[in-house]
């Protein structure tokens, strides 16, 4: 390979920031590529695409993306993204962050942004633990899983994220794993073009922390597990898509509906008459 040869993704990434910080076997590289491919295929004006994250391994994605990118504080990506979108509705705003960031410290922001149907896209990489801080349990860690802060096995019930998203009001809800490259890419593309609050969960390997302590093998072994244990069930009630420790992984598109967004519902001042004013 000649030194001048460039990767097809080079214009979409900040190549001068490579190498990235992610461990070998991590799913983030694949997930990131799916997002970049989806954005390119979507036909959106890249100057109007914005990416926002909180803190964590996934939170580093914006810093590698060659569009307007915002790496905010832990848990706060969603309200930051909401501010960007409402202040300039021309922007296509995507939050790309991890399960701990979005659903523990940021959980309240998630449910309220979904409730308001703010037109932003949330992509959540769920690796079942806090990877960057060395592998602690989080709001998605399955019961009985071993982490550095659940050494006897996790005794907290996890969230079913797709059910939470649907119940909170998201208009588009899907779940894939890092091995579903084609389907995940298509789903992200749909979400980018969908009006309203969209949510995509990506089940993704963390061999260094979660996988190692739970004897799941290396990254490739986890990908093989996804291939063998994922089952596509489009359109099912997300309540039935619960995840368990080393159980079946239900994937698919569960919700795709239309309803007015926060901006659609803004008061139409041109329709205000003097009589309305008490």
């Amino acid at each position: 390979m000649s030194m001048n040869e460039i990767h097809p993704m080079d214009k979409l990434i900040r190549a001068d920031r490579m190498p990235h910080i992610w461990c070998s076997g991590c799913g983030l590289g694949t997930n990131f590529t799916c997002y970049l491919t989806a954005m390119e295929k979507s036909g959106l004006d890249l100057d109007k695409c914005v990416i926002v994250s909180g803190i964590g391994c996934t939170g580093r994605i914006p810093g590698y993306t060659n569009i307007d990118s915002f790496h905010t504080t832990h848990g706060r990506a969603i309200p930051f993204a909401l501010g960007l979108k409402l202040a300039n509705p021309e922007l296509t705003v995507t939050v790309f962050s991890g399960d701990g960031d979005l659903f523990a410290i940021g959980g309240n922001h998630f449910i309220h942004a979904a409730r308001r149907n703010v037109d932003i896209n949330i992509i959540c990489v769920n690796n079942f633990n806090y990877g960057m801080t060395g592998g602690q349990f989080g709001p998605t860690t399955p019961l009985d899983a071993i982490t550095t802060t659940s050494p006897y096995g996790n005794y907290e019930h996890p969230f079913n994220l797709v059910d939470l998203a649907a119940a909170s009001g998201a208009v588009y809800v899907a779940r894939w794993t890092s091995i579903h490259v084609r389907r995940l890419t298509k789903s992200i593309q749909e979400a980018l073009l969908k009006k309203g609050f969209t949510f995509i969960e990506i089940i993704s390997p963390c061999p260094t922390n979660y996988g190692r302590r739970n004897k799941l093998g290396d990254g490739l072994d986890e990908m093989k597990y996804y291939r063998e244990h994922s089952i596509i069930k489009h359109g099912i009630n997300p309540k039935e898509a619960d995840l368990s420790f080393n159980g079946e992984i239900v994937v698919g598109k569960f919700v795709d509906i239309d309803k007015p967004t926060f901006l659609d519902n803004q008061p139409d001042m041109s329709q205000m008459s003097v009589n309305n004013k008490k």
Binding site: V52, F70, T72, T73, G75, R76, I78, P79, F80, A81, L82, G83, L84, K85, L86, A87, N88, L91, N108, H109, H112, F262, Q266, P267, M269
Partner: peptide
């Protein structure tokens, strides 16, 4: 709404502060 701006009542003050940072980055 009278001046074409956005009012939003957030879920808490952490969200309020972040929302105004995002809005400012959008040039408003």
């Amino acid at each position: 709404p009278e001046v074409g701006g956005i009012f939003i009542q957030m879920e808490d003050e952490m969200a309020s502060m972040n929302a105004i940072l995002g809005a400012s980055w959008a040039g408003v």
